[in-house]
């Protein structure tokens, strides 16, 4: 309950801060929507040229991948935006500020920053889903549920890789790239990947868990598969919590003086 209150405070504060520069906020949101729309053109032209089947995936199925990825990525940016900056927070000693506060460290760090353009991604994902997918209550529930799951798993992956900074020094570039790879692979028809790549996409770069399998469930629902993928998602999230908590034990304060306003 206390955590929910903290979360709602952060959402309110971040939104107020974004709306302070209203023109910049709107430019970023609409800029991101336009930016993402370019990819529809790419897939439209490609499917028109090669016929509506790439490794068993049609235009509608690929658009599902794009909508859920944009929506989940947007949610992660808006509500868990600080995951991207975790390495920097650790190596600059900024973590001191969070350690001193009487709140759970990881949620407190993750919620305290919102990336404005994420609103554009999330809105784009919702609109794209509404325009390109057959709508039903179950379908919408799968989309929204797995959108949230994608946001959580993507953040968990970022937390795990950024936490390497606790152990090996600055892992910022590596962790940023790893997060980008999850998104990159999530947006291409899963059928084109096979062999060892598929193993990677089910584990260290879990694009299959956050995008391909939800797309499969959206097309034809299967309870066993649903439970399996949720268990896998939970495992990754739990892994992130453990890796971060262990990392914090190794953290040495830089005696940095700072304030959060």
């Amino acid at each position: 309950m206390k955590l929910m209150r903290l979360f709602s405070h952060y959402v309110k504060l971040n939104l107020q801060s974004a709306m302070e520069y209203r023109a910049a906020f709107l430019t970023q949101v609409f800029g991101m929507i336009l930016n993402n729309s370019a990819f529809i053109v790419f897939w439209l032209v490609l499917f028109r040229a090669v016929g509506d089947d790439i490794a068993g995936w049609g235009f509608t199925a690929v658009m599902f991948l794009w909508s859920i990825t944009a929506f989940g990525f947007g949610l992660a940016s808006v509500f868990l935006g600080n995951a991207l900056y975790l390495s920097r927070i650790i190596y600059t000693g900024e973590l001191d500020v969070y350690l001193l506060q009487p709140k759970p460290i990881l949620p407190n760090v993750l919620w305290s920053r919102s990336i404005v353009s994420g609103w554009g991604d999330a809105a784009y994902g919702l609109v794209l889903f509404g325009l390109t997918q057959p709508l039903s209550v179950a379908g919408i529930a799968i989309f929204l549920g797995f959108g949230v799951a994608l946001a959580l798993v993507l953040t968990a992956i970022r937390v795990i890789y950024h936490s390497l900074t606790f152990y090996f020094g600055n892992a910022e570039d590596f962790a940023t790239t790893a997060g980008e790879l999850v998104i990159l692979f999530s947006m291409y028809p899963g059928g084109v990947f096979d062999g060892p790549t598929m193993w990677l996409l089910h584990s260290v770069i879990p694009a299959a868990l956050v995008a391909f399998i939800p797309a499969q469930l959206f097309a034809s629902f299967d309870t066993t598969l649903l439970l399996a993928v949720l268990a896998a998602d939970a495992l990754i999230i739990a892994g992130a919590v453990i890796v971060f908590a262990r990392g914090v034990r190794r953290y040495e304060s830089g005696n940095r003086i700072g304030a959060r306003l």
């Binding site: 520069y21 023109a23 910049a24 800029g31 930016n35």
Partner: peptide, 8 residues
């Protein structure tokens, strides 16, 4: 104020 969206 912010030209990043133009860049995107």
């Amino acid at each position: 104020e912010d030209v990043t969206p133009f860049y995107w």
